[in-house]
Design a protein around this nucleic acid. Sequence first.
DNA 1: ATAATTGCAAACACTTTGCATTTAT
DNA 2: ATAAATGCAAAGTGTTTGCAATTAT
Lengths: 123, 123
Amino acid sequence: MLKKTKTRKRVEEILLSADTPLTANDIYTILHQEQITLSSIYRTLDTYTKEGIIAKENNIDGIAIYTLKQDDHHHFLECKNCHKKIKLDYCPYHQANSKIKKNNAFEVDETNVVYGTCKDCKK
Amino acid sequence: MLKKTKTRKRVEEILLSADTPLTANDIYTILHQEQITLSSIYRTLDTYTKEGIIAKENNIDGIAIYTLKQDDHHHFLECKNCHKKIKLDYCPYHQANSKIKKNNAFEVDETNVVYGTCKDCKK
DNA sequence: ATAATTGCAAACACTTTGCATTTAT
DNA sequence: ATAAATGCAAAGTGTTTGCAATTAT
C-alpha cells in the first residue's frame, strides 16, 4: 500500500496550493531546503500519476507539468511567446470531447494548458 | 536566404509522404543511410518550424513530432495505451478555437494528435 | 567568392534507475 | 518486522551547440 511520506505530503500540498501546473523542478525549488530529493519528487509524481491522483501533461517545450486532479480545476491559454496565461472559467473542449467519445468511442485526456499566441504578440 | 540542401529536400519529402507526425529520429532512421546527420535533421526541423513550413508538437512522452503544414492535413486520436490511431476527417476543435479567438483574443495552436484512451483499452 | 549549412563530437537538460539505507505501517 | 520509499550518484535520452570543413548561391 501507499505510504504517506513527507515527500508525498509536501508534493500534494504544493500542487494543491498552486493555481497552475508545475514542473518537477518547480516543486524541487520549493522543497530542496526540506531535504527532499528531485528523484523522490519524480517518483512521487509518477506514482500519483499512475494512481490517477495527479494529471501529467507536457508544456510547449516538452517538459512534464503536473496538477492535482480536483473538481475545482482550470484551463489556461498560454502564449508561447510572452508566456502570459489567460485563466478560463470553463472547459473550452468539453462539448467537442463529448462528441468524440460518442462518435469515436475514444476518451480524450483533457489538458489544462492550451498553447498559442495572444493578440499582443500577434504582430 | 534559405538554401535548398539535400537534407532539407529529403526531410520535406519524407514529411510530405508521411501520414502521421514523425520524430527527428523517425526521419533519421530513413535518412542515415544517405549520410545525413541527426543534428542536421534537427536544424532543418528547427529552421522550417521557425519559417512556418513545419508544425512542431510534442507526443505524450514529451518528444517532439513534426508535420509539414499542408491544406490536406489530418487529426488523429491516439490511444496512449495501445497507440492505435484514429484518423479524423475533420478538425474536432475548430469551432471551440474560433470561439476562443473571438472571446479571448488568443489564437490556439492546433495540434494534429490528441491523446486519450480507446474503448478497447478502457476496461 | 562568400554566406549558409553540415558533420562530428561534446555538452545539455530532463528524467530514470540501482542499490544501500531509512521509514511508515 | 518488513515492505515500501528515499538519497545519492550514475546512467539514459532527446536535443542543442561550437567549430572547422563543405556546399549552394
